[in-house]
Design a binder for these strands. Structure first.
Lengths: 282, 282
DNA sequence: CGATTGATGATCGAATGTGATTGATTCTTA
DNA sequence: TAAGAATCAATCACATTCGATCATCAATCG
């Protein structure tokens, strides 16, 4: 049997809902545990499965082989939430997002006031935030929910209308809480980051974010490297309006060049084993 | 059993509305208490649950268990709320509250705009609300969450600061969205309803509610009969500012007398068998 | 045919997960 | 307030799993 054939078999044999042990695979494929381990490590490296101690797990929503028809737990949860898109976006690239969010935590000091924009990476940031006397202004409902049990964190919402798809509150008028708020930092995600600046896809978001950015001293962009030079249409602000970019090791030297040339501090977040581990549970 | 499998099970087993004890988890998963404790600490560290003495709690709006089939809308939203104090108040007198909320539904017509104040009875109202093109302004986080999946309902939030205990957003300044909002109806709960008017216990609530009432044409009070002539300290408004009171059969003739004497329309909600049944589910 | 490469299996020390014990801490109750 | 119960973190011993190394074998190529 050839290596690639065995790999296919392994992926097919993976239980959809639980860890498949090395022993199981050893028995079913008739090869030694050492070989299975090697295979699993390589397949993990290639991103085809999730290696865990004792065996391996299927990556959610990745492999839909003919045999294991997934009635899909994820669909069930989707229906519970109503809006699948948001939760789904928190899962893709989860380890990297965690790493970036963790790097962003370095900017936090007790007593600081900050704006946290909506988005999956900033949501991860809120999740990892300690219960310290911060003051947070956010437009995001999930972040609001997440901060509900951080008793020391003061939370402010600008008023406005609920947009379900994005799960944010936007104010069509330029009034309200925002006038009275002044933040030391603003954390913002994006759809893309190019030489033309920070890009989004939604006009509503653009308007709102522009207004929010005016209220912050320092703008910190959280963007994994796939966002750099990604295609996008609407510019929120030029690069000069950005102070810091936190991204991952995938950043190309060329991109780093033009970011730093624009006077932006570039931080690279290291993905740790813990980040990967934490992302396994969902 | 593998670590990741156990983690998934633990998160699934977590009770939505109370602390799940280490012993419970020990029994259900068949591993030692030491292991459960270790798992809980790690999962807490990773932000997947809230570790408390004796066990662990689910984190708000984070994990949507796939197994607990949510047949009823109530059940669904309960798991979203979590906060015990608030949940507790929705349970006391639940059948009566359901009956009153159902009676309040008669006031709703598609296209109507309304203000829904925070509180357990108004929360029940939001829960029972149909998915129709209403426009709702609310200060209550649980109601906001509950309306997230009513796709046709337009939701507006006044800006302000989060008050965790009451789970509402209050604006210390008198500006923002509220200026631009005008509602046909306002639904409001209370701590007591006396000859002196509508009473609350919290000064913050009083301020906010006064401002909200100004924006509504018709004020509808939802108050079960135990609230009538109950002791309370702070007056929100005199009886003359109230248009309708919806209560239950426990209303005394005397009370009905002075309510109607103040020009208030009194409606009595009939508690049906279904109301009792629906309340047992929790 | 012989050499080289790559995959496989076995072995072993290291790392990790688990359960039991113990003493400390915290909560409850009298 | 004090005694008792419950819970906890720390630690040790045992079992499992892991990664590194090496020897063997088969396929490939000169």
């Amino acid at each position: 049997m050839h290596l690639q054939d065995r790999w296919k078999l392994i992926i097919d044999e993976l239980n959809p809902d639980r860890v498949t042990s090395v022993d199981e695979l050893t028995a079913r494929l008739g090869v030694s545990p050492a070989t299975i381990r090697r295979d699993l490590n390589e397949l993990h490296e290639l991103g085809h499965l999730l290696r865990v101690r004792g065996g391996a797990m299927r990556i959610e929503g990745k492999h839909f082989t003919a045999k294991a028809e997934p009635k899909t737990p994820e669909f069930q949860t989707d229906s519970l939430i109503g809006q699948s898109s948001f939760l789904a976006s928190t899962i893709v690239n989860a380890p990297v997002k965690r790493a970036i969010a963790r790097a962003a935590l370095d900017f936090l000091k007790p007593g600081i006031s900050m704006i946290i924009d909506g988005g999956s990476t900033t949501y991860t940031l809120a999740n990892m935030m300690a219960n310290e006397p911060y003051h947070v202004l956010t437009t995001s409902i999930p972040i609001l929910q997440c901060l509900l049990d951080r008793s020391k964190v003061k939370v402010t919402l600008p008023g406005g209308e609920l947009f379900r798809e994005q799960r944010i509150i936007l104010n069509p008028y330029d009034d309200g809480m925002l006038q009275n708020f002044s933040a030391a930092k603003m954390f913002i995600g994006c759809q893309a980051l190019t030489r033309n600046g920070l890009m989004q896809s939604d006009t509503l978001l653009v308007q709102s974010e522009r207004r929010l950015m005016e209220r912050a001293d320092q703008v910190i962009v959280l963007a994994d490297s796939s966002k750099i030079d990604a295609p996008a249409s609407l510019s929120v602000c030029p690069l000069t309006a950005i102070d810091v970019v936190i991204t991952d090791e995938g950043l190309t030297d060329a991109a780093r060049e033009w970011l730093e040339h624009a006077g932006i501090e570039v931080r690279i977040a290291q993905v740790t084993a813990e980040d990967r581990k934490a992302s396994e549970v969902v």
